[in-house]
Design a protein around this nucleic acid. Structure first.
Lengths: 239, 239
DNA sequence: GCCGATTTGTCCGTATGTATC
DNA sequence: CGATACATACGGACAAATCGG
């Protein structure tokens, strides 16, 4: 991301998180920011818009742009923006290991098609992985990738980071992700693969991911042990 | 919302949901849309940006703007954008009733402050409500409102719709909502108030809401019976 | 492989409206 | 009422990616 507005966004975000612009105060007005970043009006606004969408600030007409982000008490494993499992784990201060349980080519039949959103007949790669950290198997990922989008993928790469491979080696850009969160009973398979303790339900995140070409290339169900599951998001009226 | 870009957004959204612009096809390019809506390219771009943020389309450089929205099979009770409980229930085709269990003024002590994000000493209104539909008590809402933001609120209004009252009567605008989703064990209180069947865990949505002045005026925990809980959201890289 | 047409992405500069103080 | 500050819209310019000839 080499856009000017994005650099400004990142800079402002840093300052908010560092407490330079504290909770419930106003950041400098557009006119000041113009001078500081030496750009126009519109570019500042674009940066502020992204900042707003991410829940850091809220513009108040006639007054200014107010900081609404509070330093968070985050517990265990927090999901949110688009990021790789490895990135998320690192951000949560956890060292993670991944074990590949299934790695096979399949052709989408009617049942798979309805569950994943792929078309019947699509060539897919079916991958199942168990995520291990804090001395326990905590997440079970069941994924279907569009085969033509993940050429050269091997079980070894799947054990490392599929998304890093796709972005760095294949030059693909992950762009949009539609997510659905539900709760489901643990299956015998979950119990066999995960360290579930007494939990009999799981938090399930269904993820349908599109690349920069607008092609749906992945549907994954991440099945989380409840005590390690936290999902954060921001909704903004009208945006 | 009287902005031009917002009308264009709504029109395009309708056409996508109606199938006028089907899944995986390109919508007309900017130049066509300029003519159709008689505005400038910047206004079109703003509308497309909102459409993108909501997961309906994805722009592809040099090619066009591709529809990535698929008609969904939504199950039971679906949450997502900012909307009142009543709106959400209606959208899911359910007729809902609300029972007010608690309605009292409190002053935030250290414990409440840490849980809600309000400051110690803030005057709050503590409201607990049970949501009933499909012949069962399915959601338990524990809320704290900033008292100065909800003047004139009564238990009767709370049984109807607090948000409708705030927006229509007090002229407040709900703008930003920071949400955290977790799973928790059901408490004795949950069991007493809800029809939990055999479920021993709940989906809990913590909601911290800010009005158009950037003032944090509400923290609510909505405790949902798992089989009626679905949460949908869209994440877009860079936005 | 190159060039030009198409299409989206970014940025500039300006103008006007609306809300606050 | 005027100054300040955000919101919307216009019009123009150039960059970057794609596609067809």
């Amino acid at each position: 991301m080499k856009a000017i507005y994005y650099d400004i966004y990142k800079d402002l975000r840093e300052k908010i998180m560092a407490g330079v612009y504290p909770y419930q105060t106003y950041i400098p007005p557009e006119l000041k920011l113009l001078e500081e970043y030496e750009c126009t009006h519109n570019t500042i606004r674009k940066a502020l818009q992204v900042l707003t969408m991410h829940g850091f600030v809220q513009p108040v007409r006639g007054k200014g742009v107010k900081v609404i982000w509070q330093a968070g008490r985050r517990t265990r494993f927090v999901l949110g923006d688009i990021e790789t499992f490895r990135e998320a784990a690192a951000k949560n201060g956890l060292e993670a290991k991944t074990q590949v349980k299934t790695f096979e080519h399949v052709v989408a039949d009617r049942r798979i098609s309805e569950a994943t959103g792929f078309a019947v007949g699509d060539e897919l790669l079916h991958i199942e992985r168990v995520r291990h950290f804090d001395d326990a198997n905590l997440i079970f990922d069941k994924s279907y990738f569009r085969a033509s989008c993940v050429e050269g993928l091997t079980p070894e790469i799947a054990a490392d980071s599929i998304f890093t491979y796709l972005e760095d080696e294949l030059g693909m850009q992950v762009t949009t992700s539609n997510r659905t969160i539900t709760m489901e009973y643990a299956t015998a398979e979950d119990r066999a693969l995960l360290d579930l303790l007494d939990f009999d339900m799981l938090a399930v995140v269904e993820n349908r991911t599109f690349n920069s070409e607008g092609v749906h290339f992945e549907t994954t169900w991440s099945r989380h042990r409840p005590d390690y599951f936290t999902f954060m998001t921001t909704a903004v009226r009208g945006c």
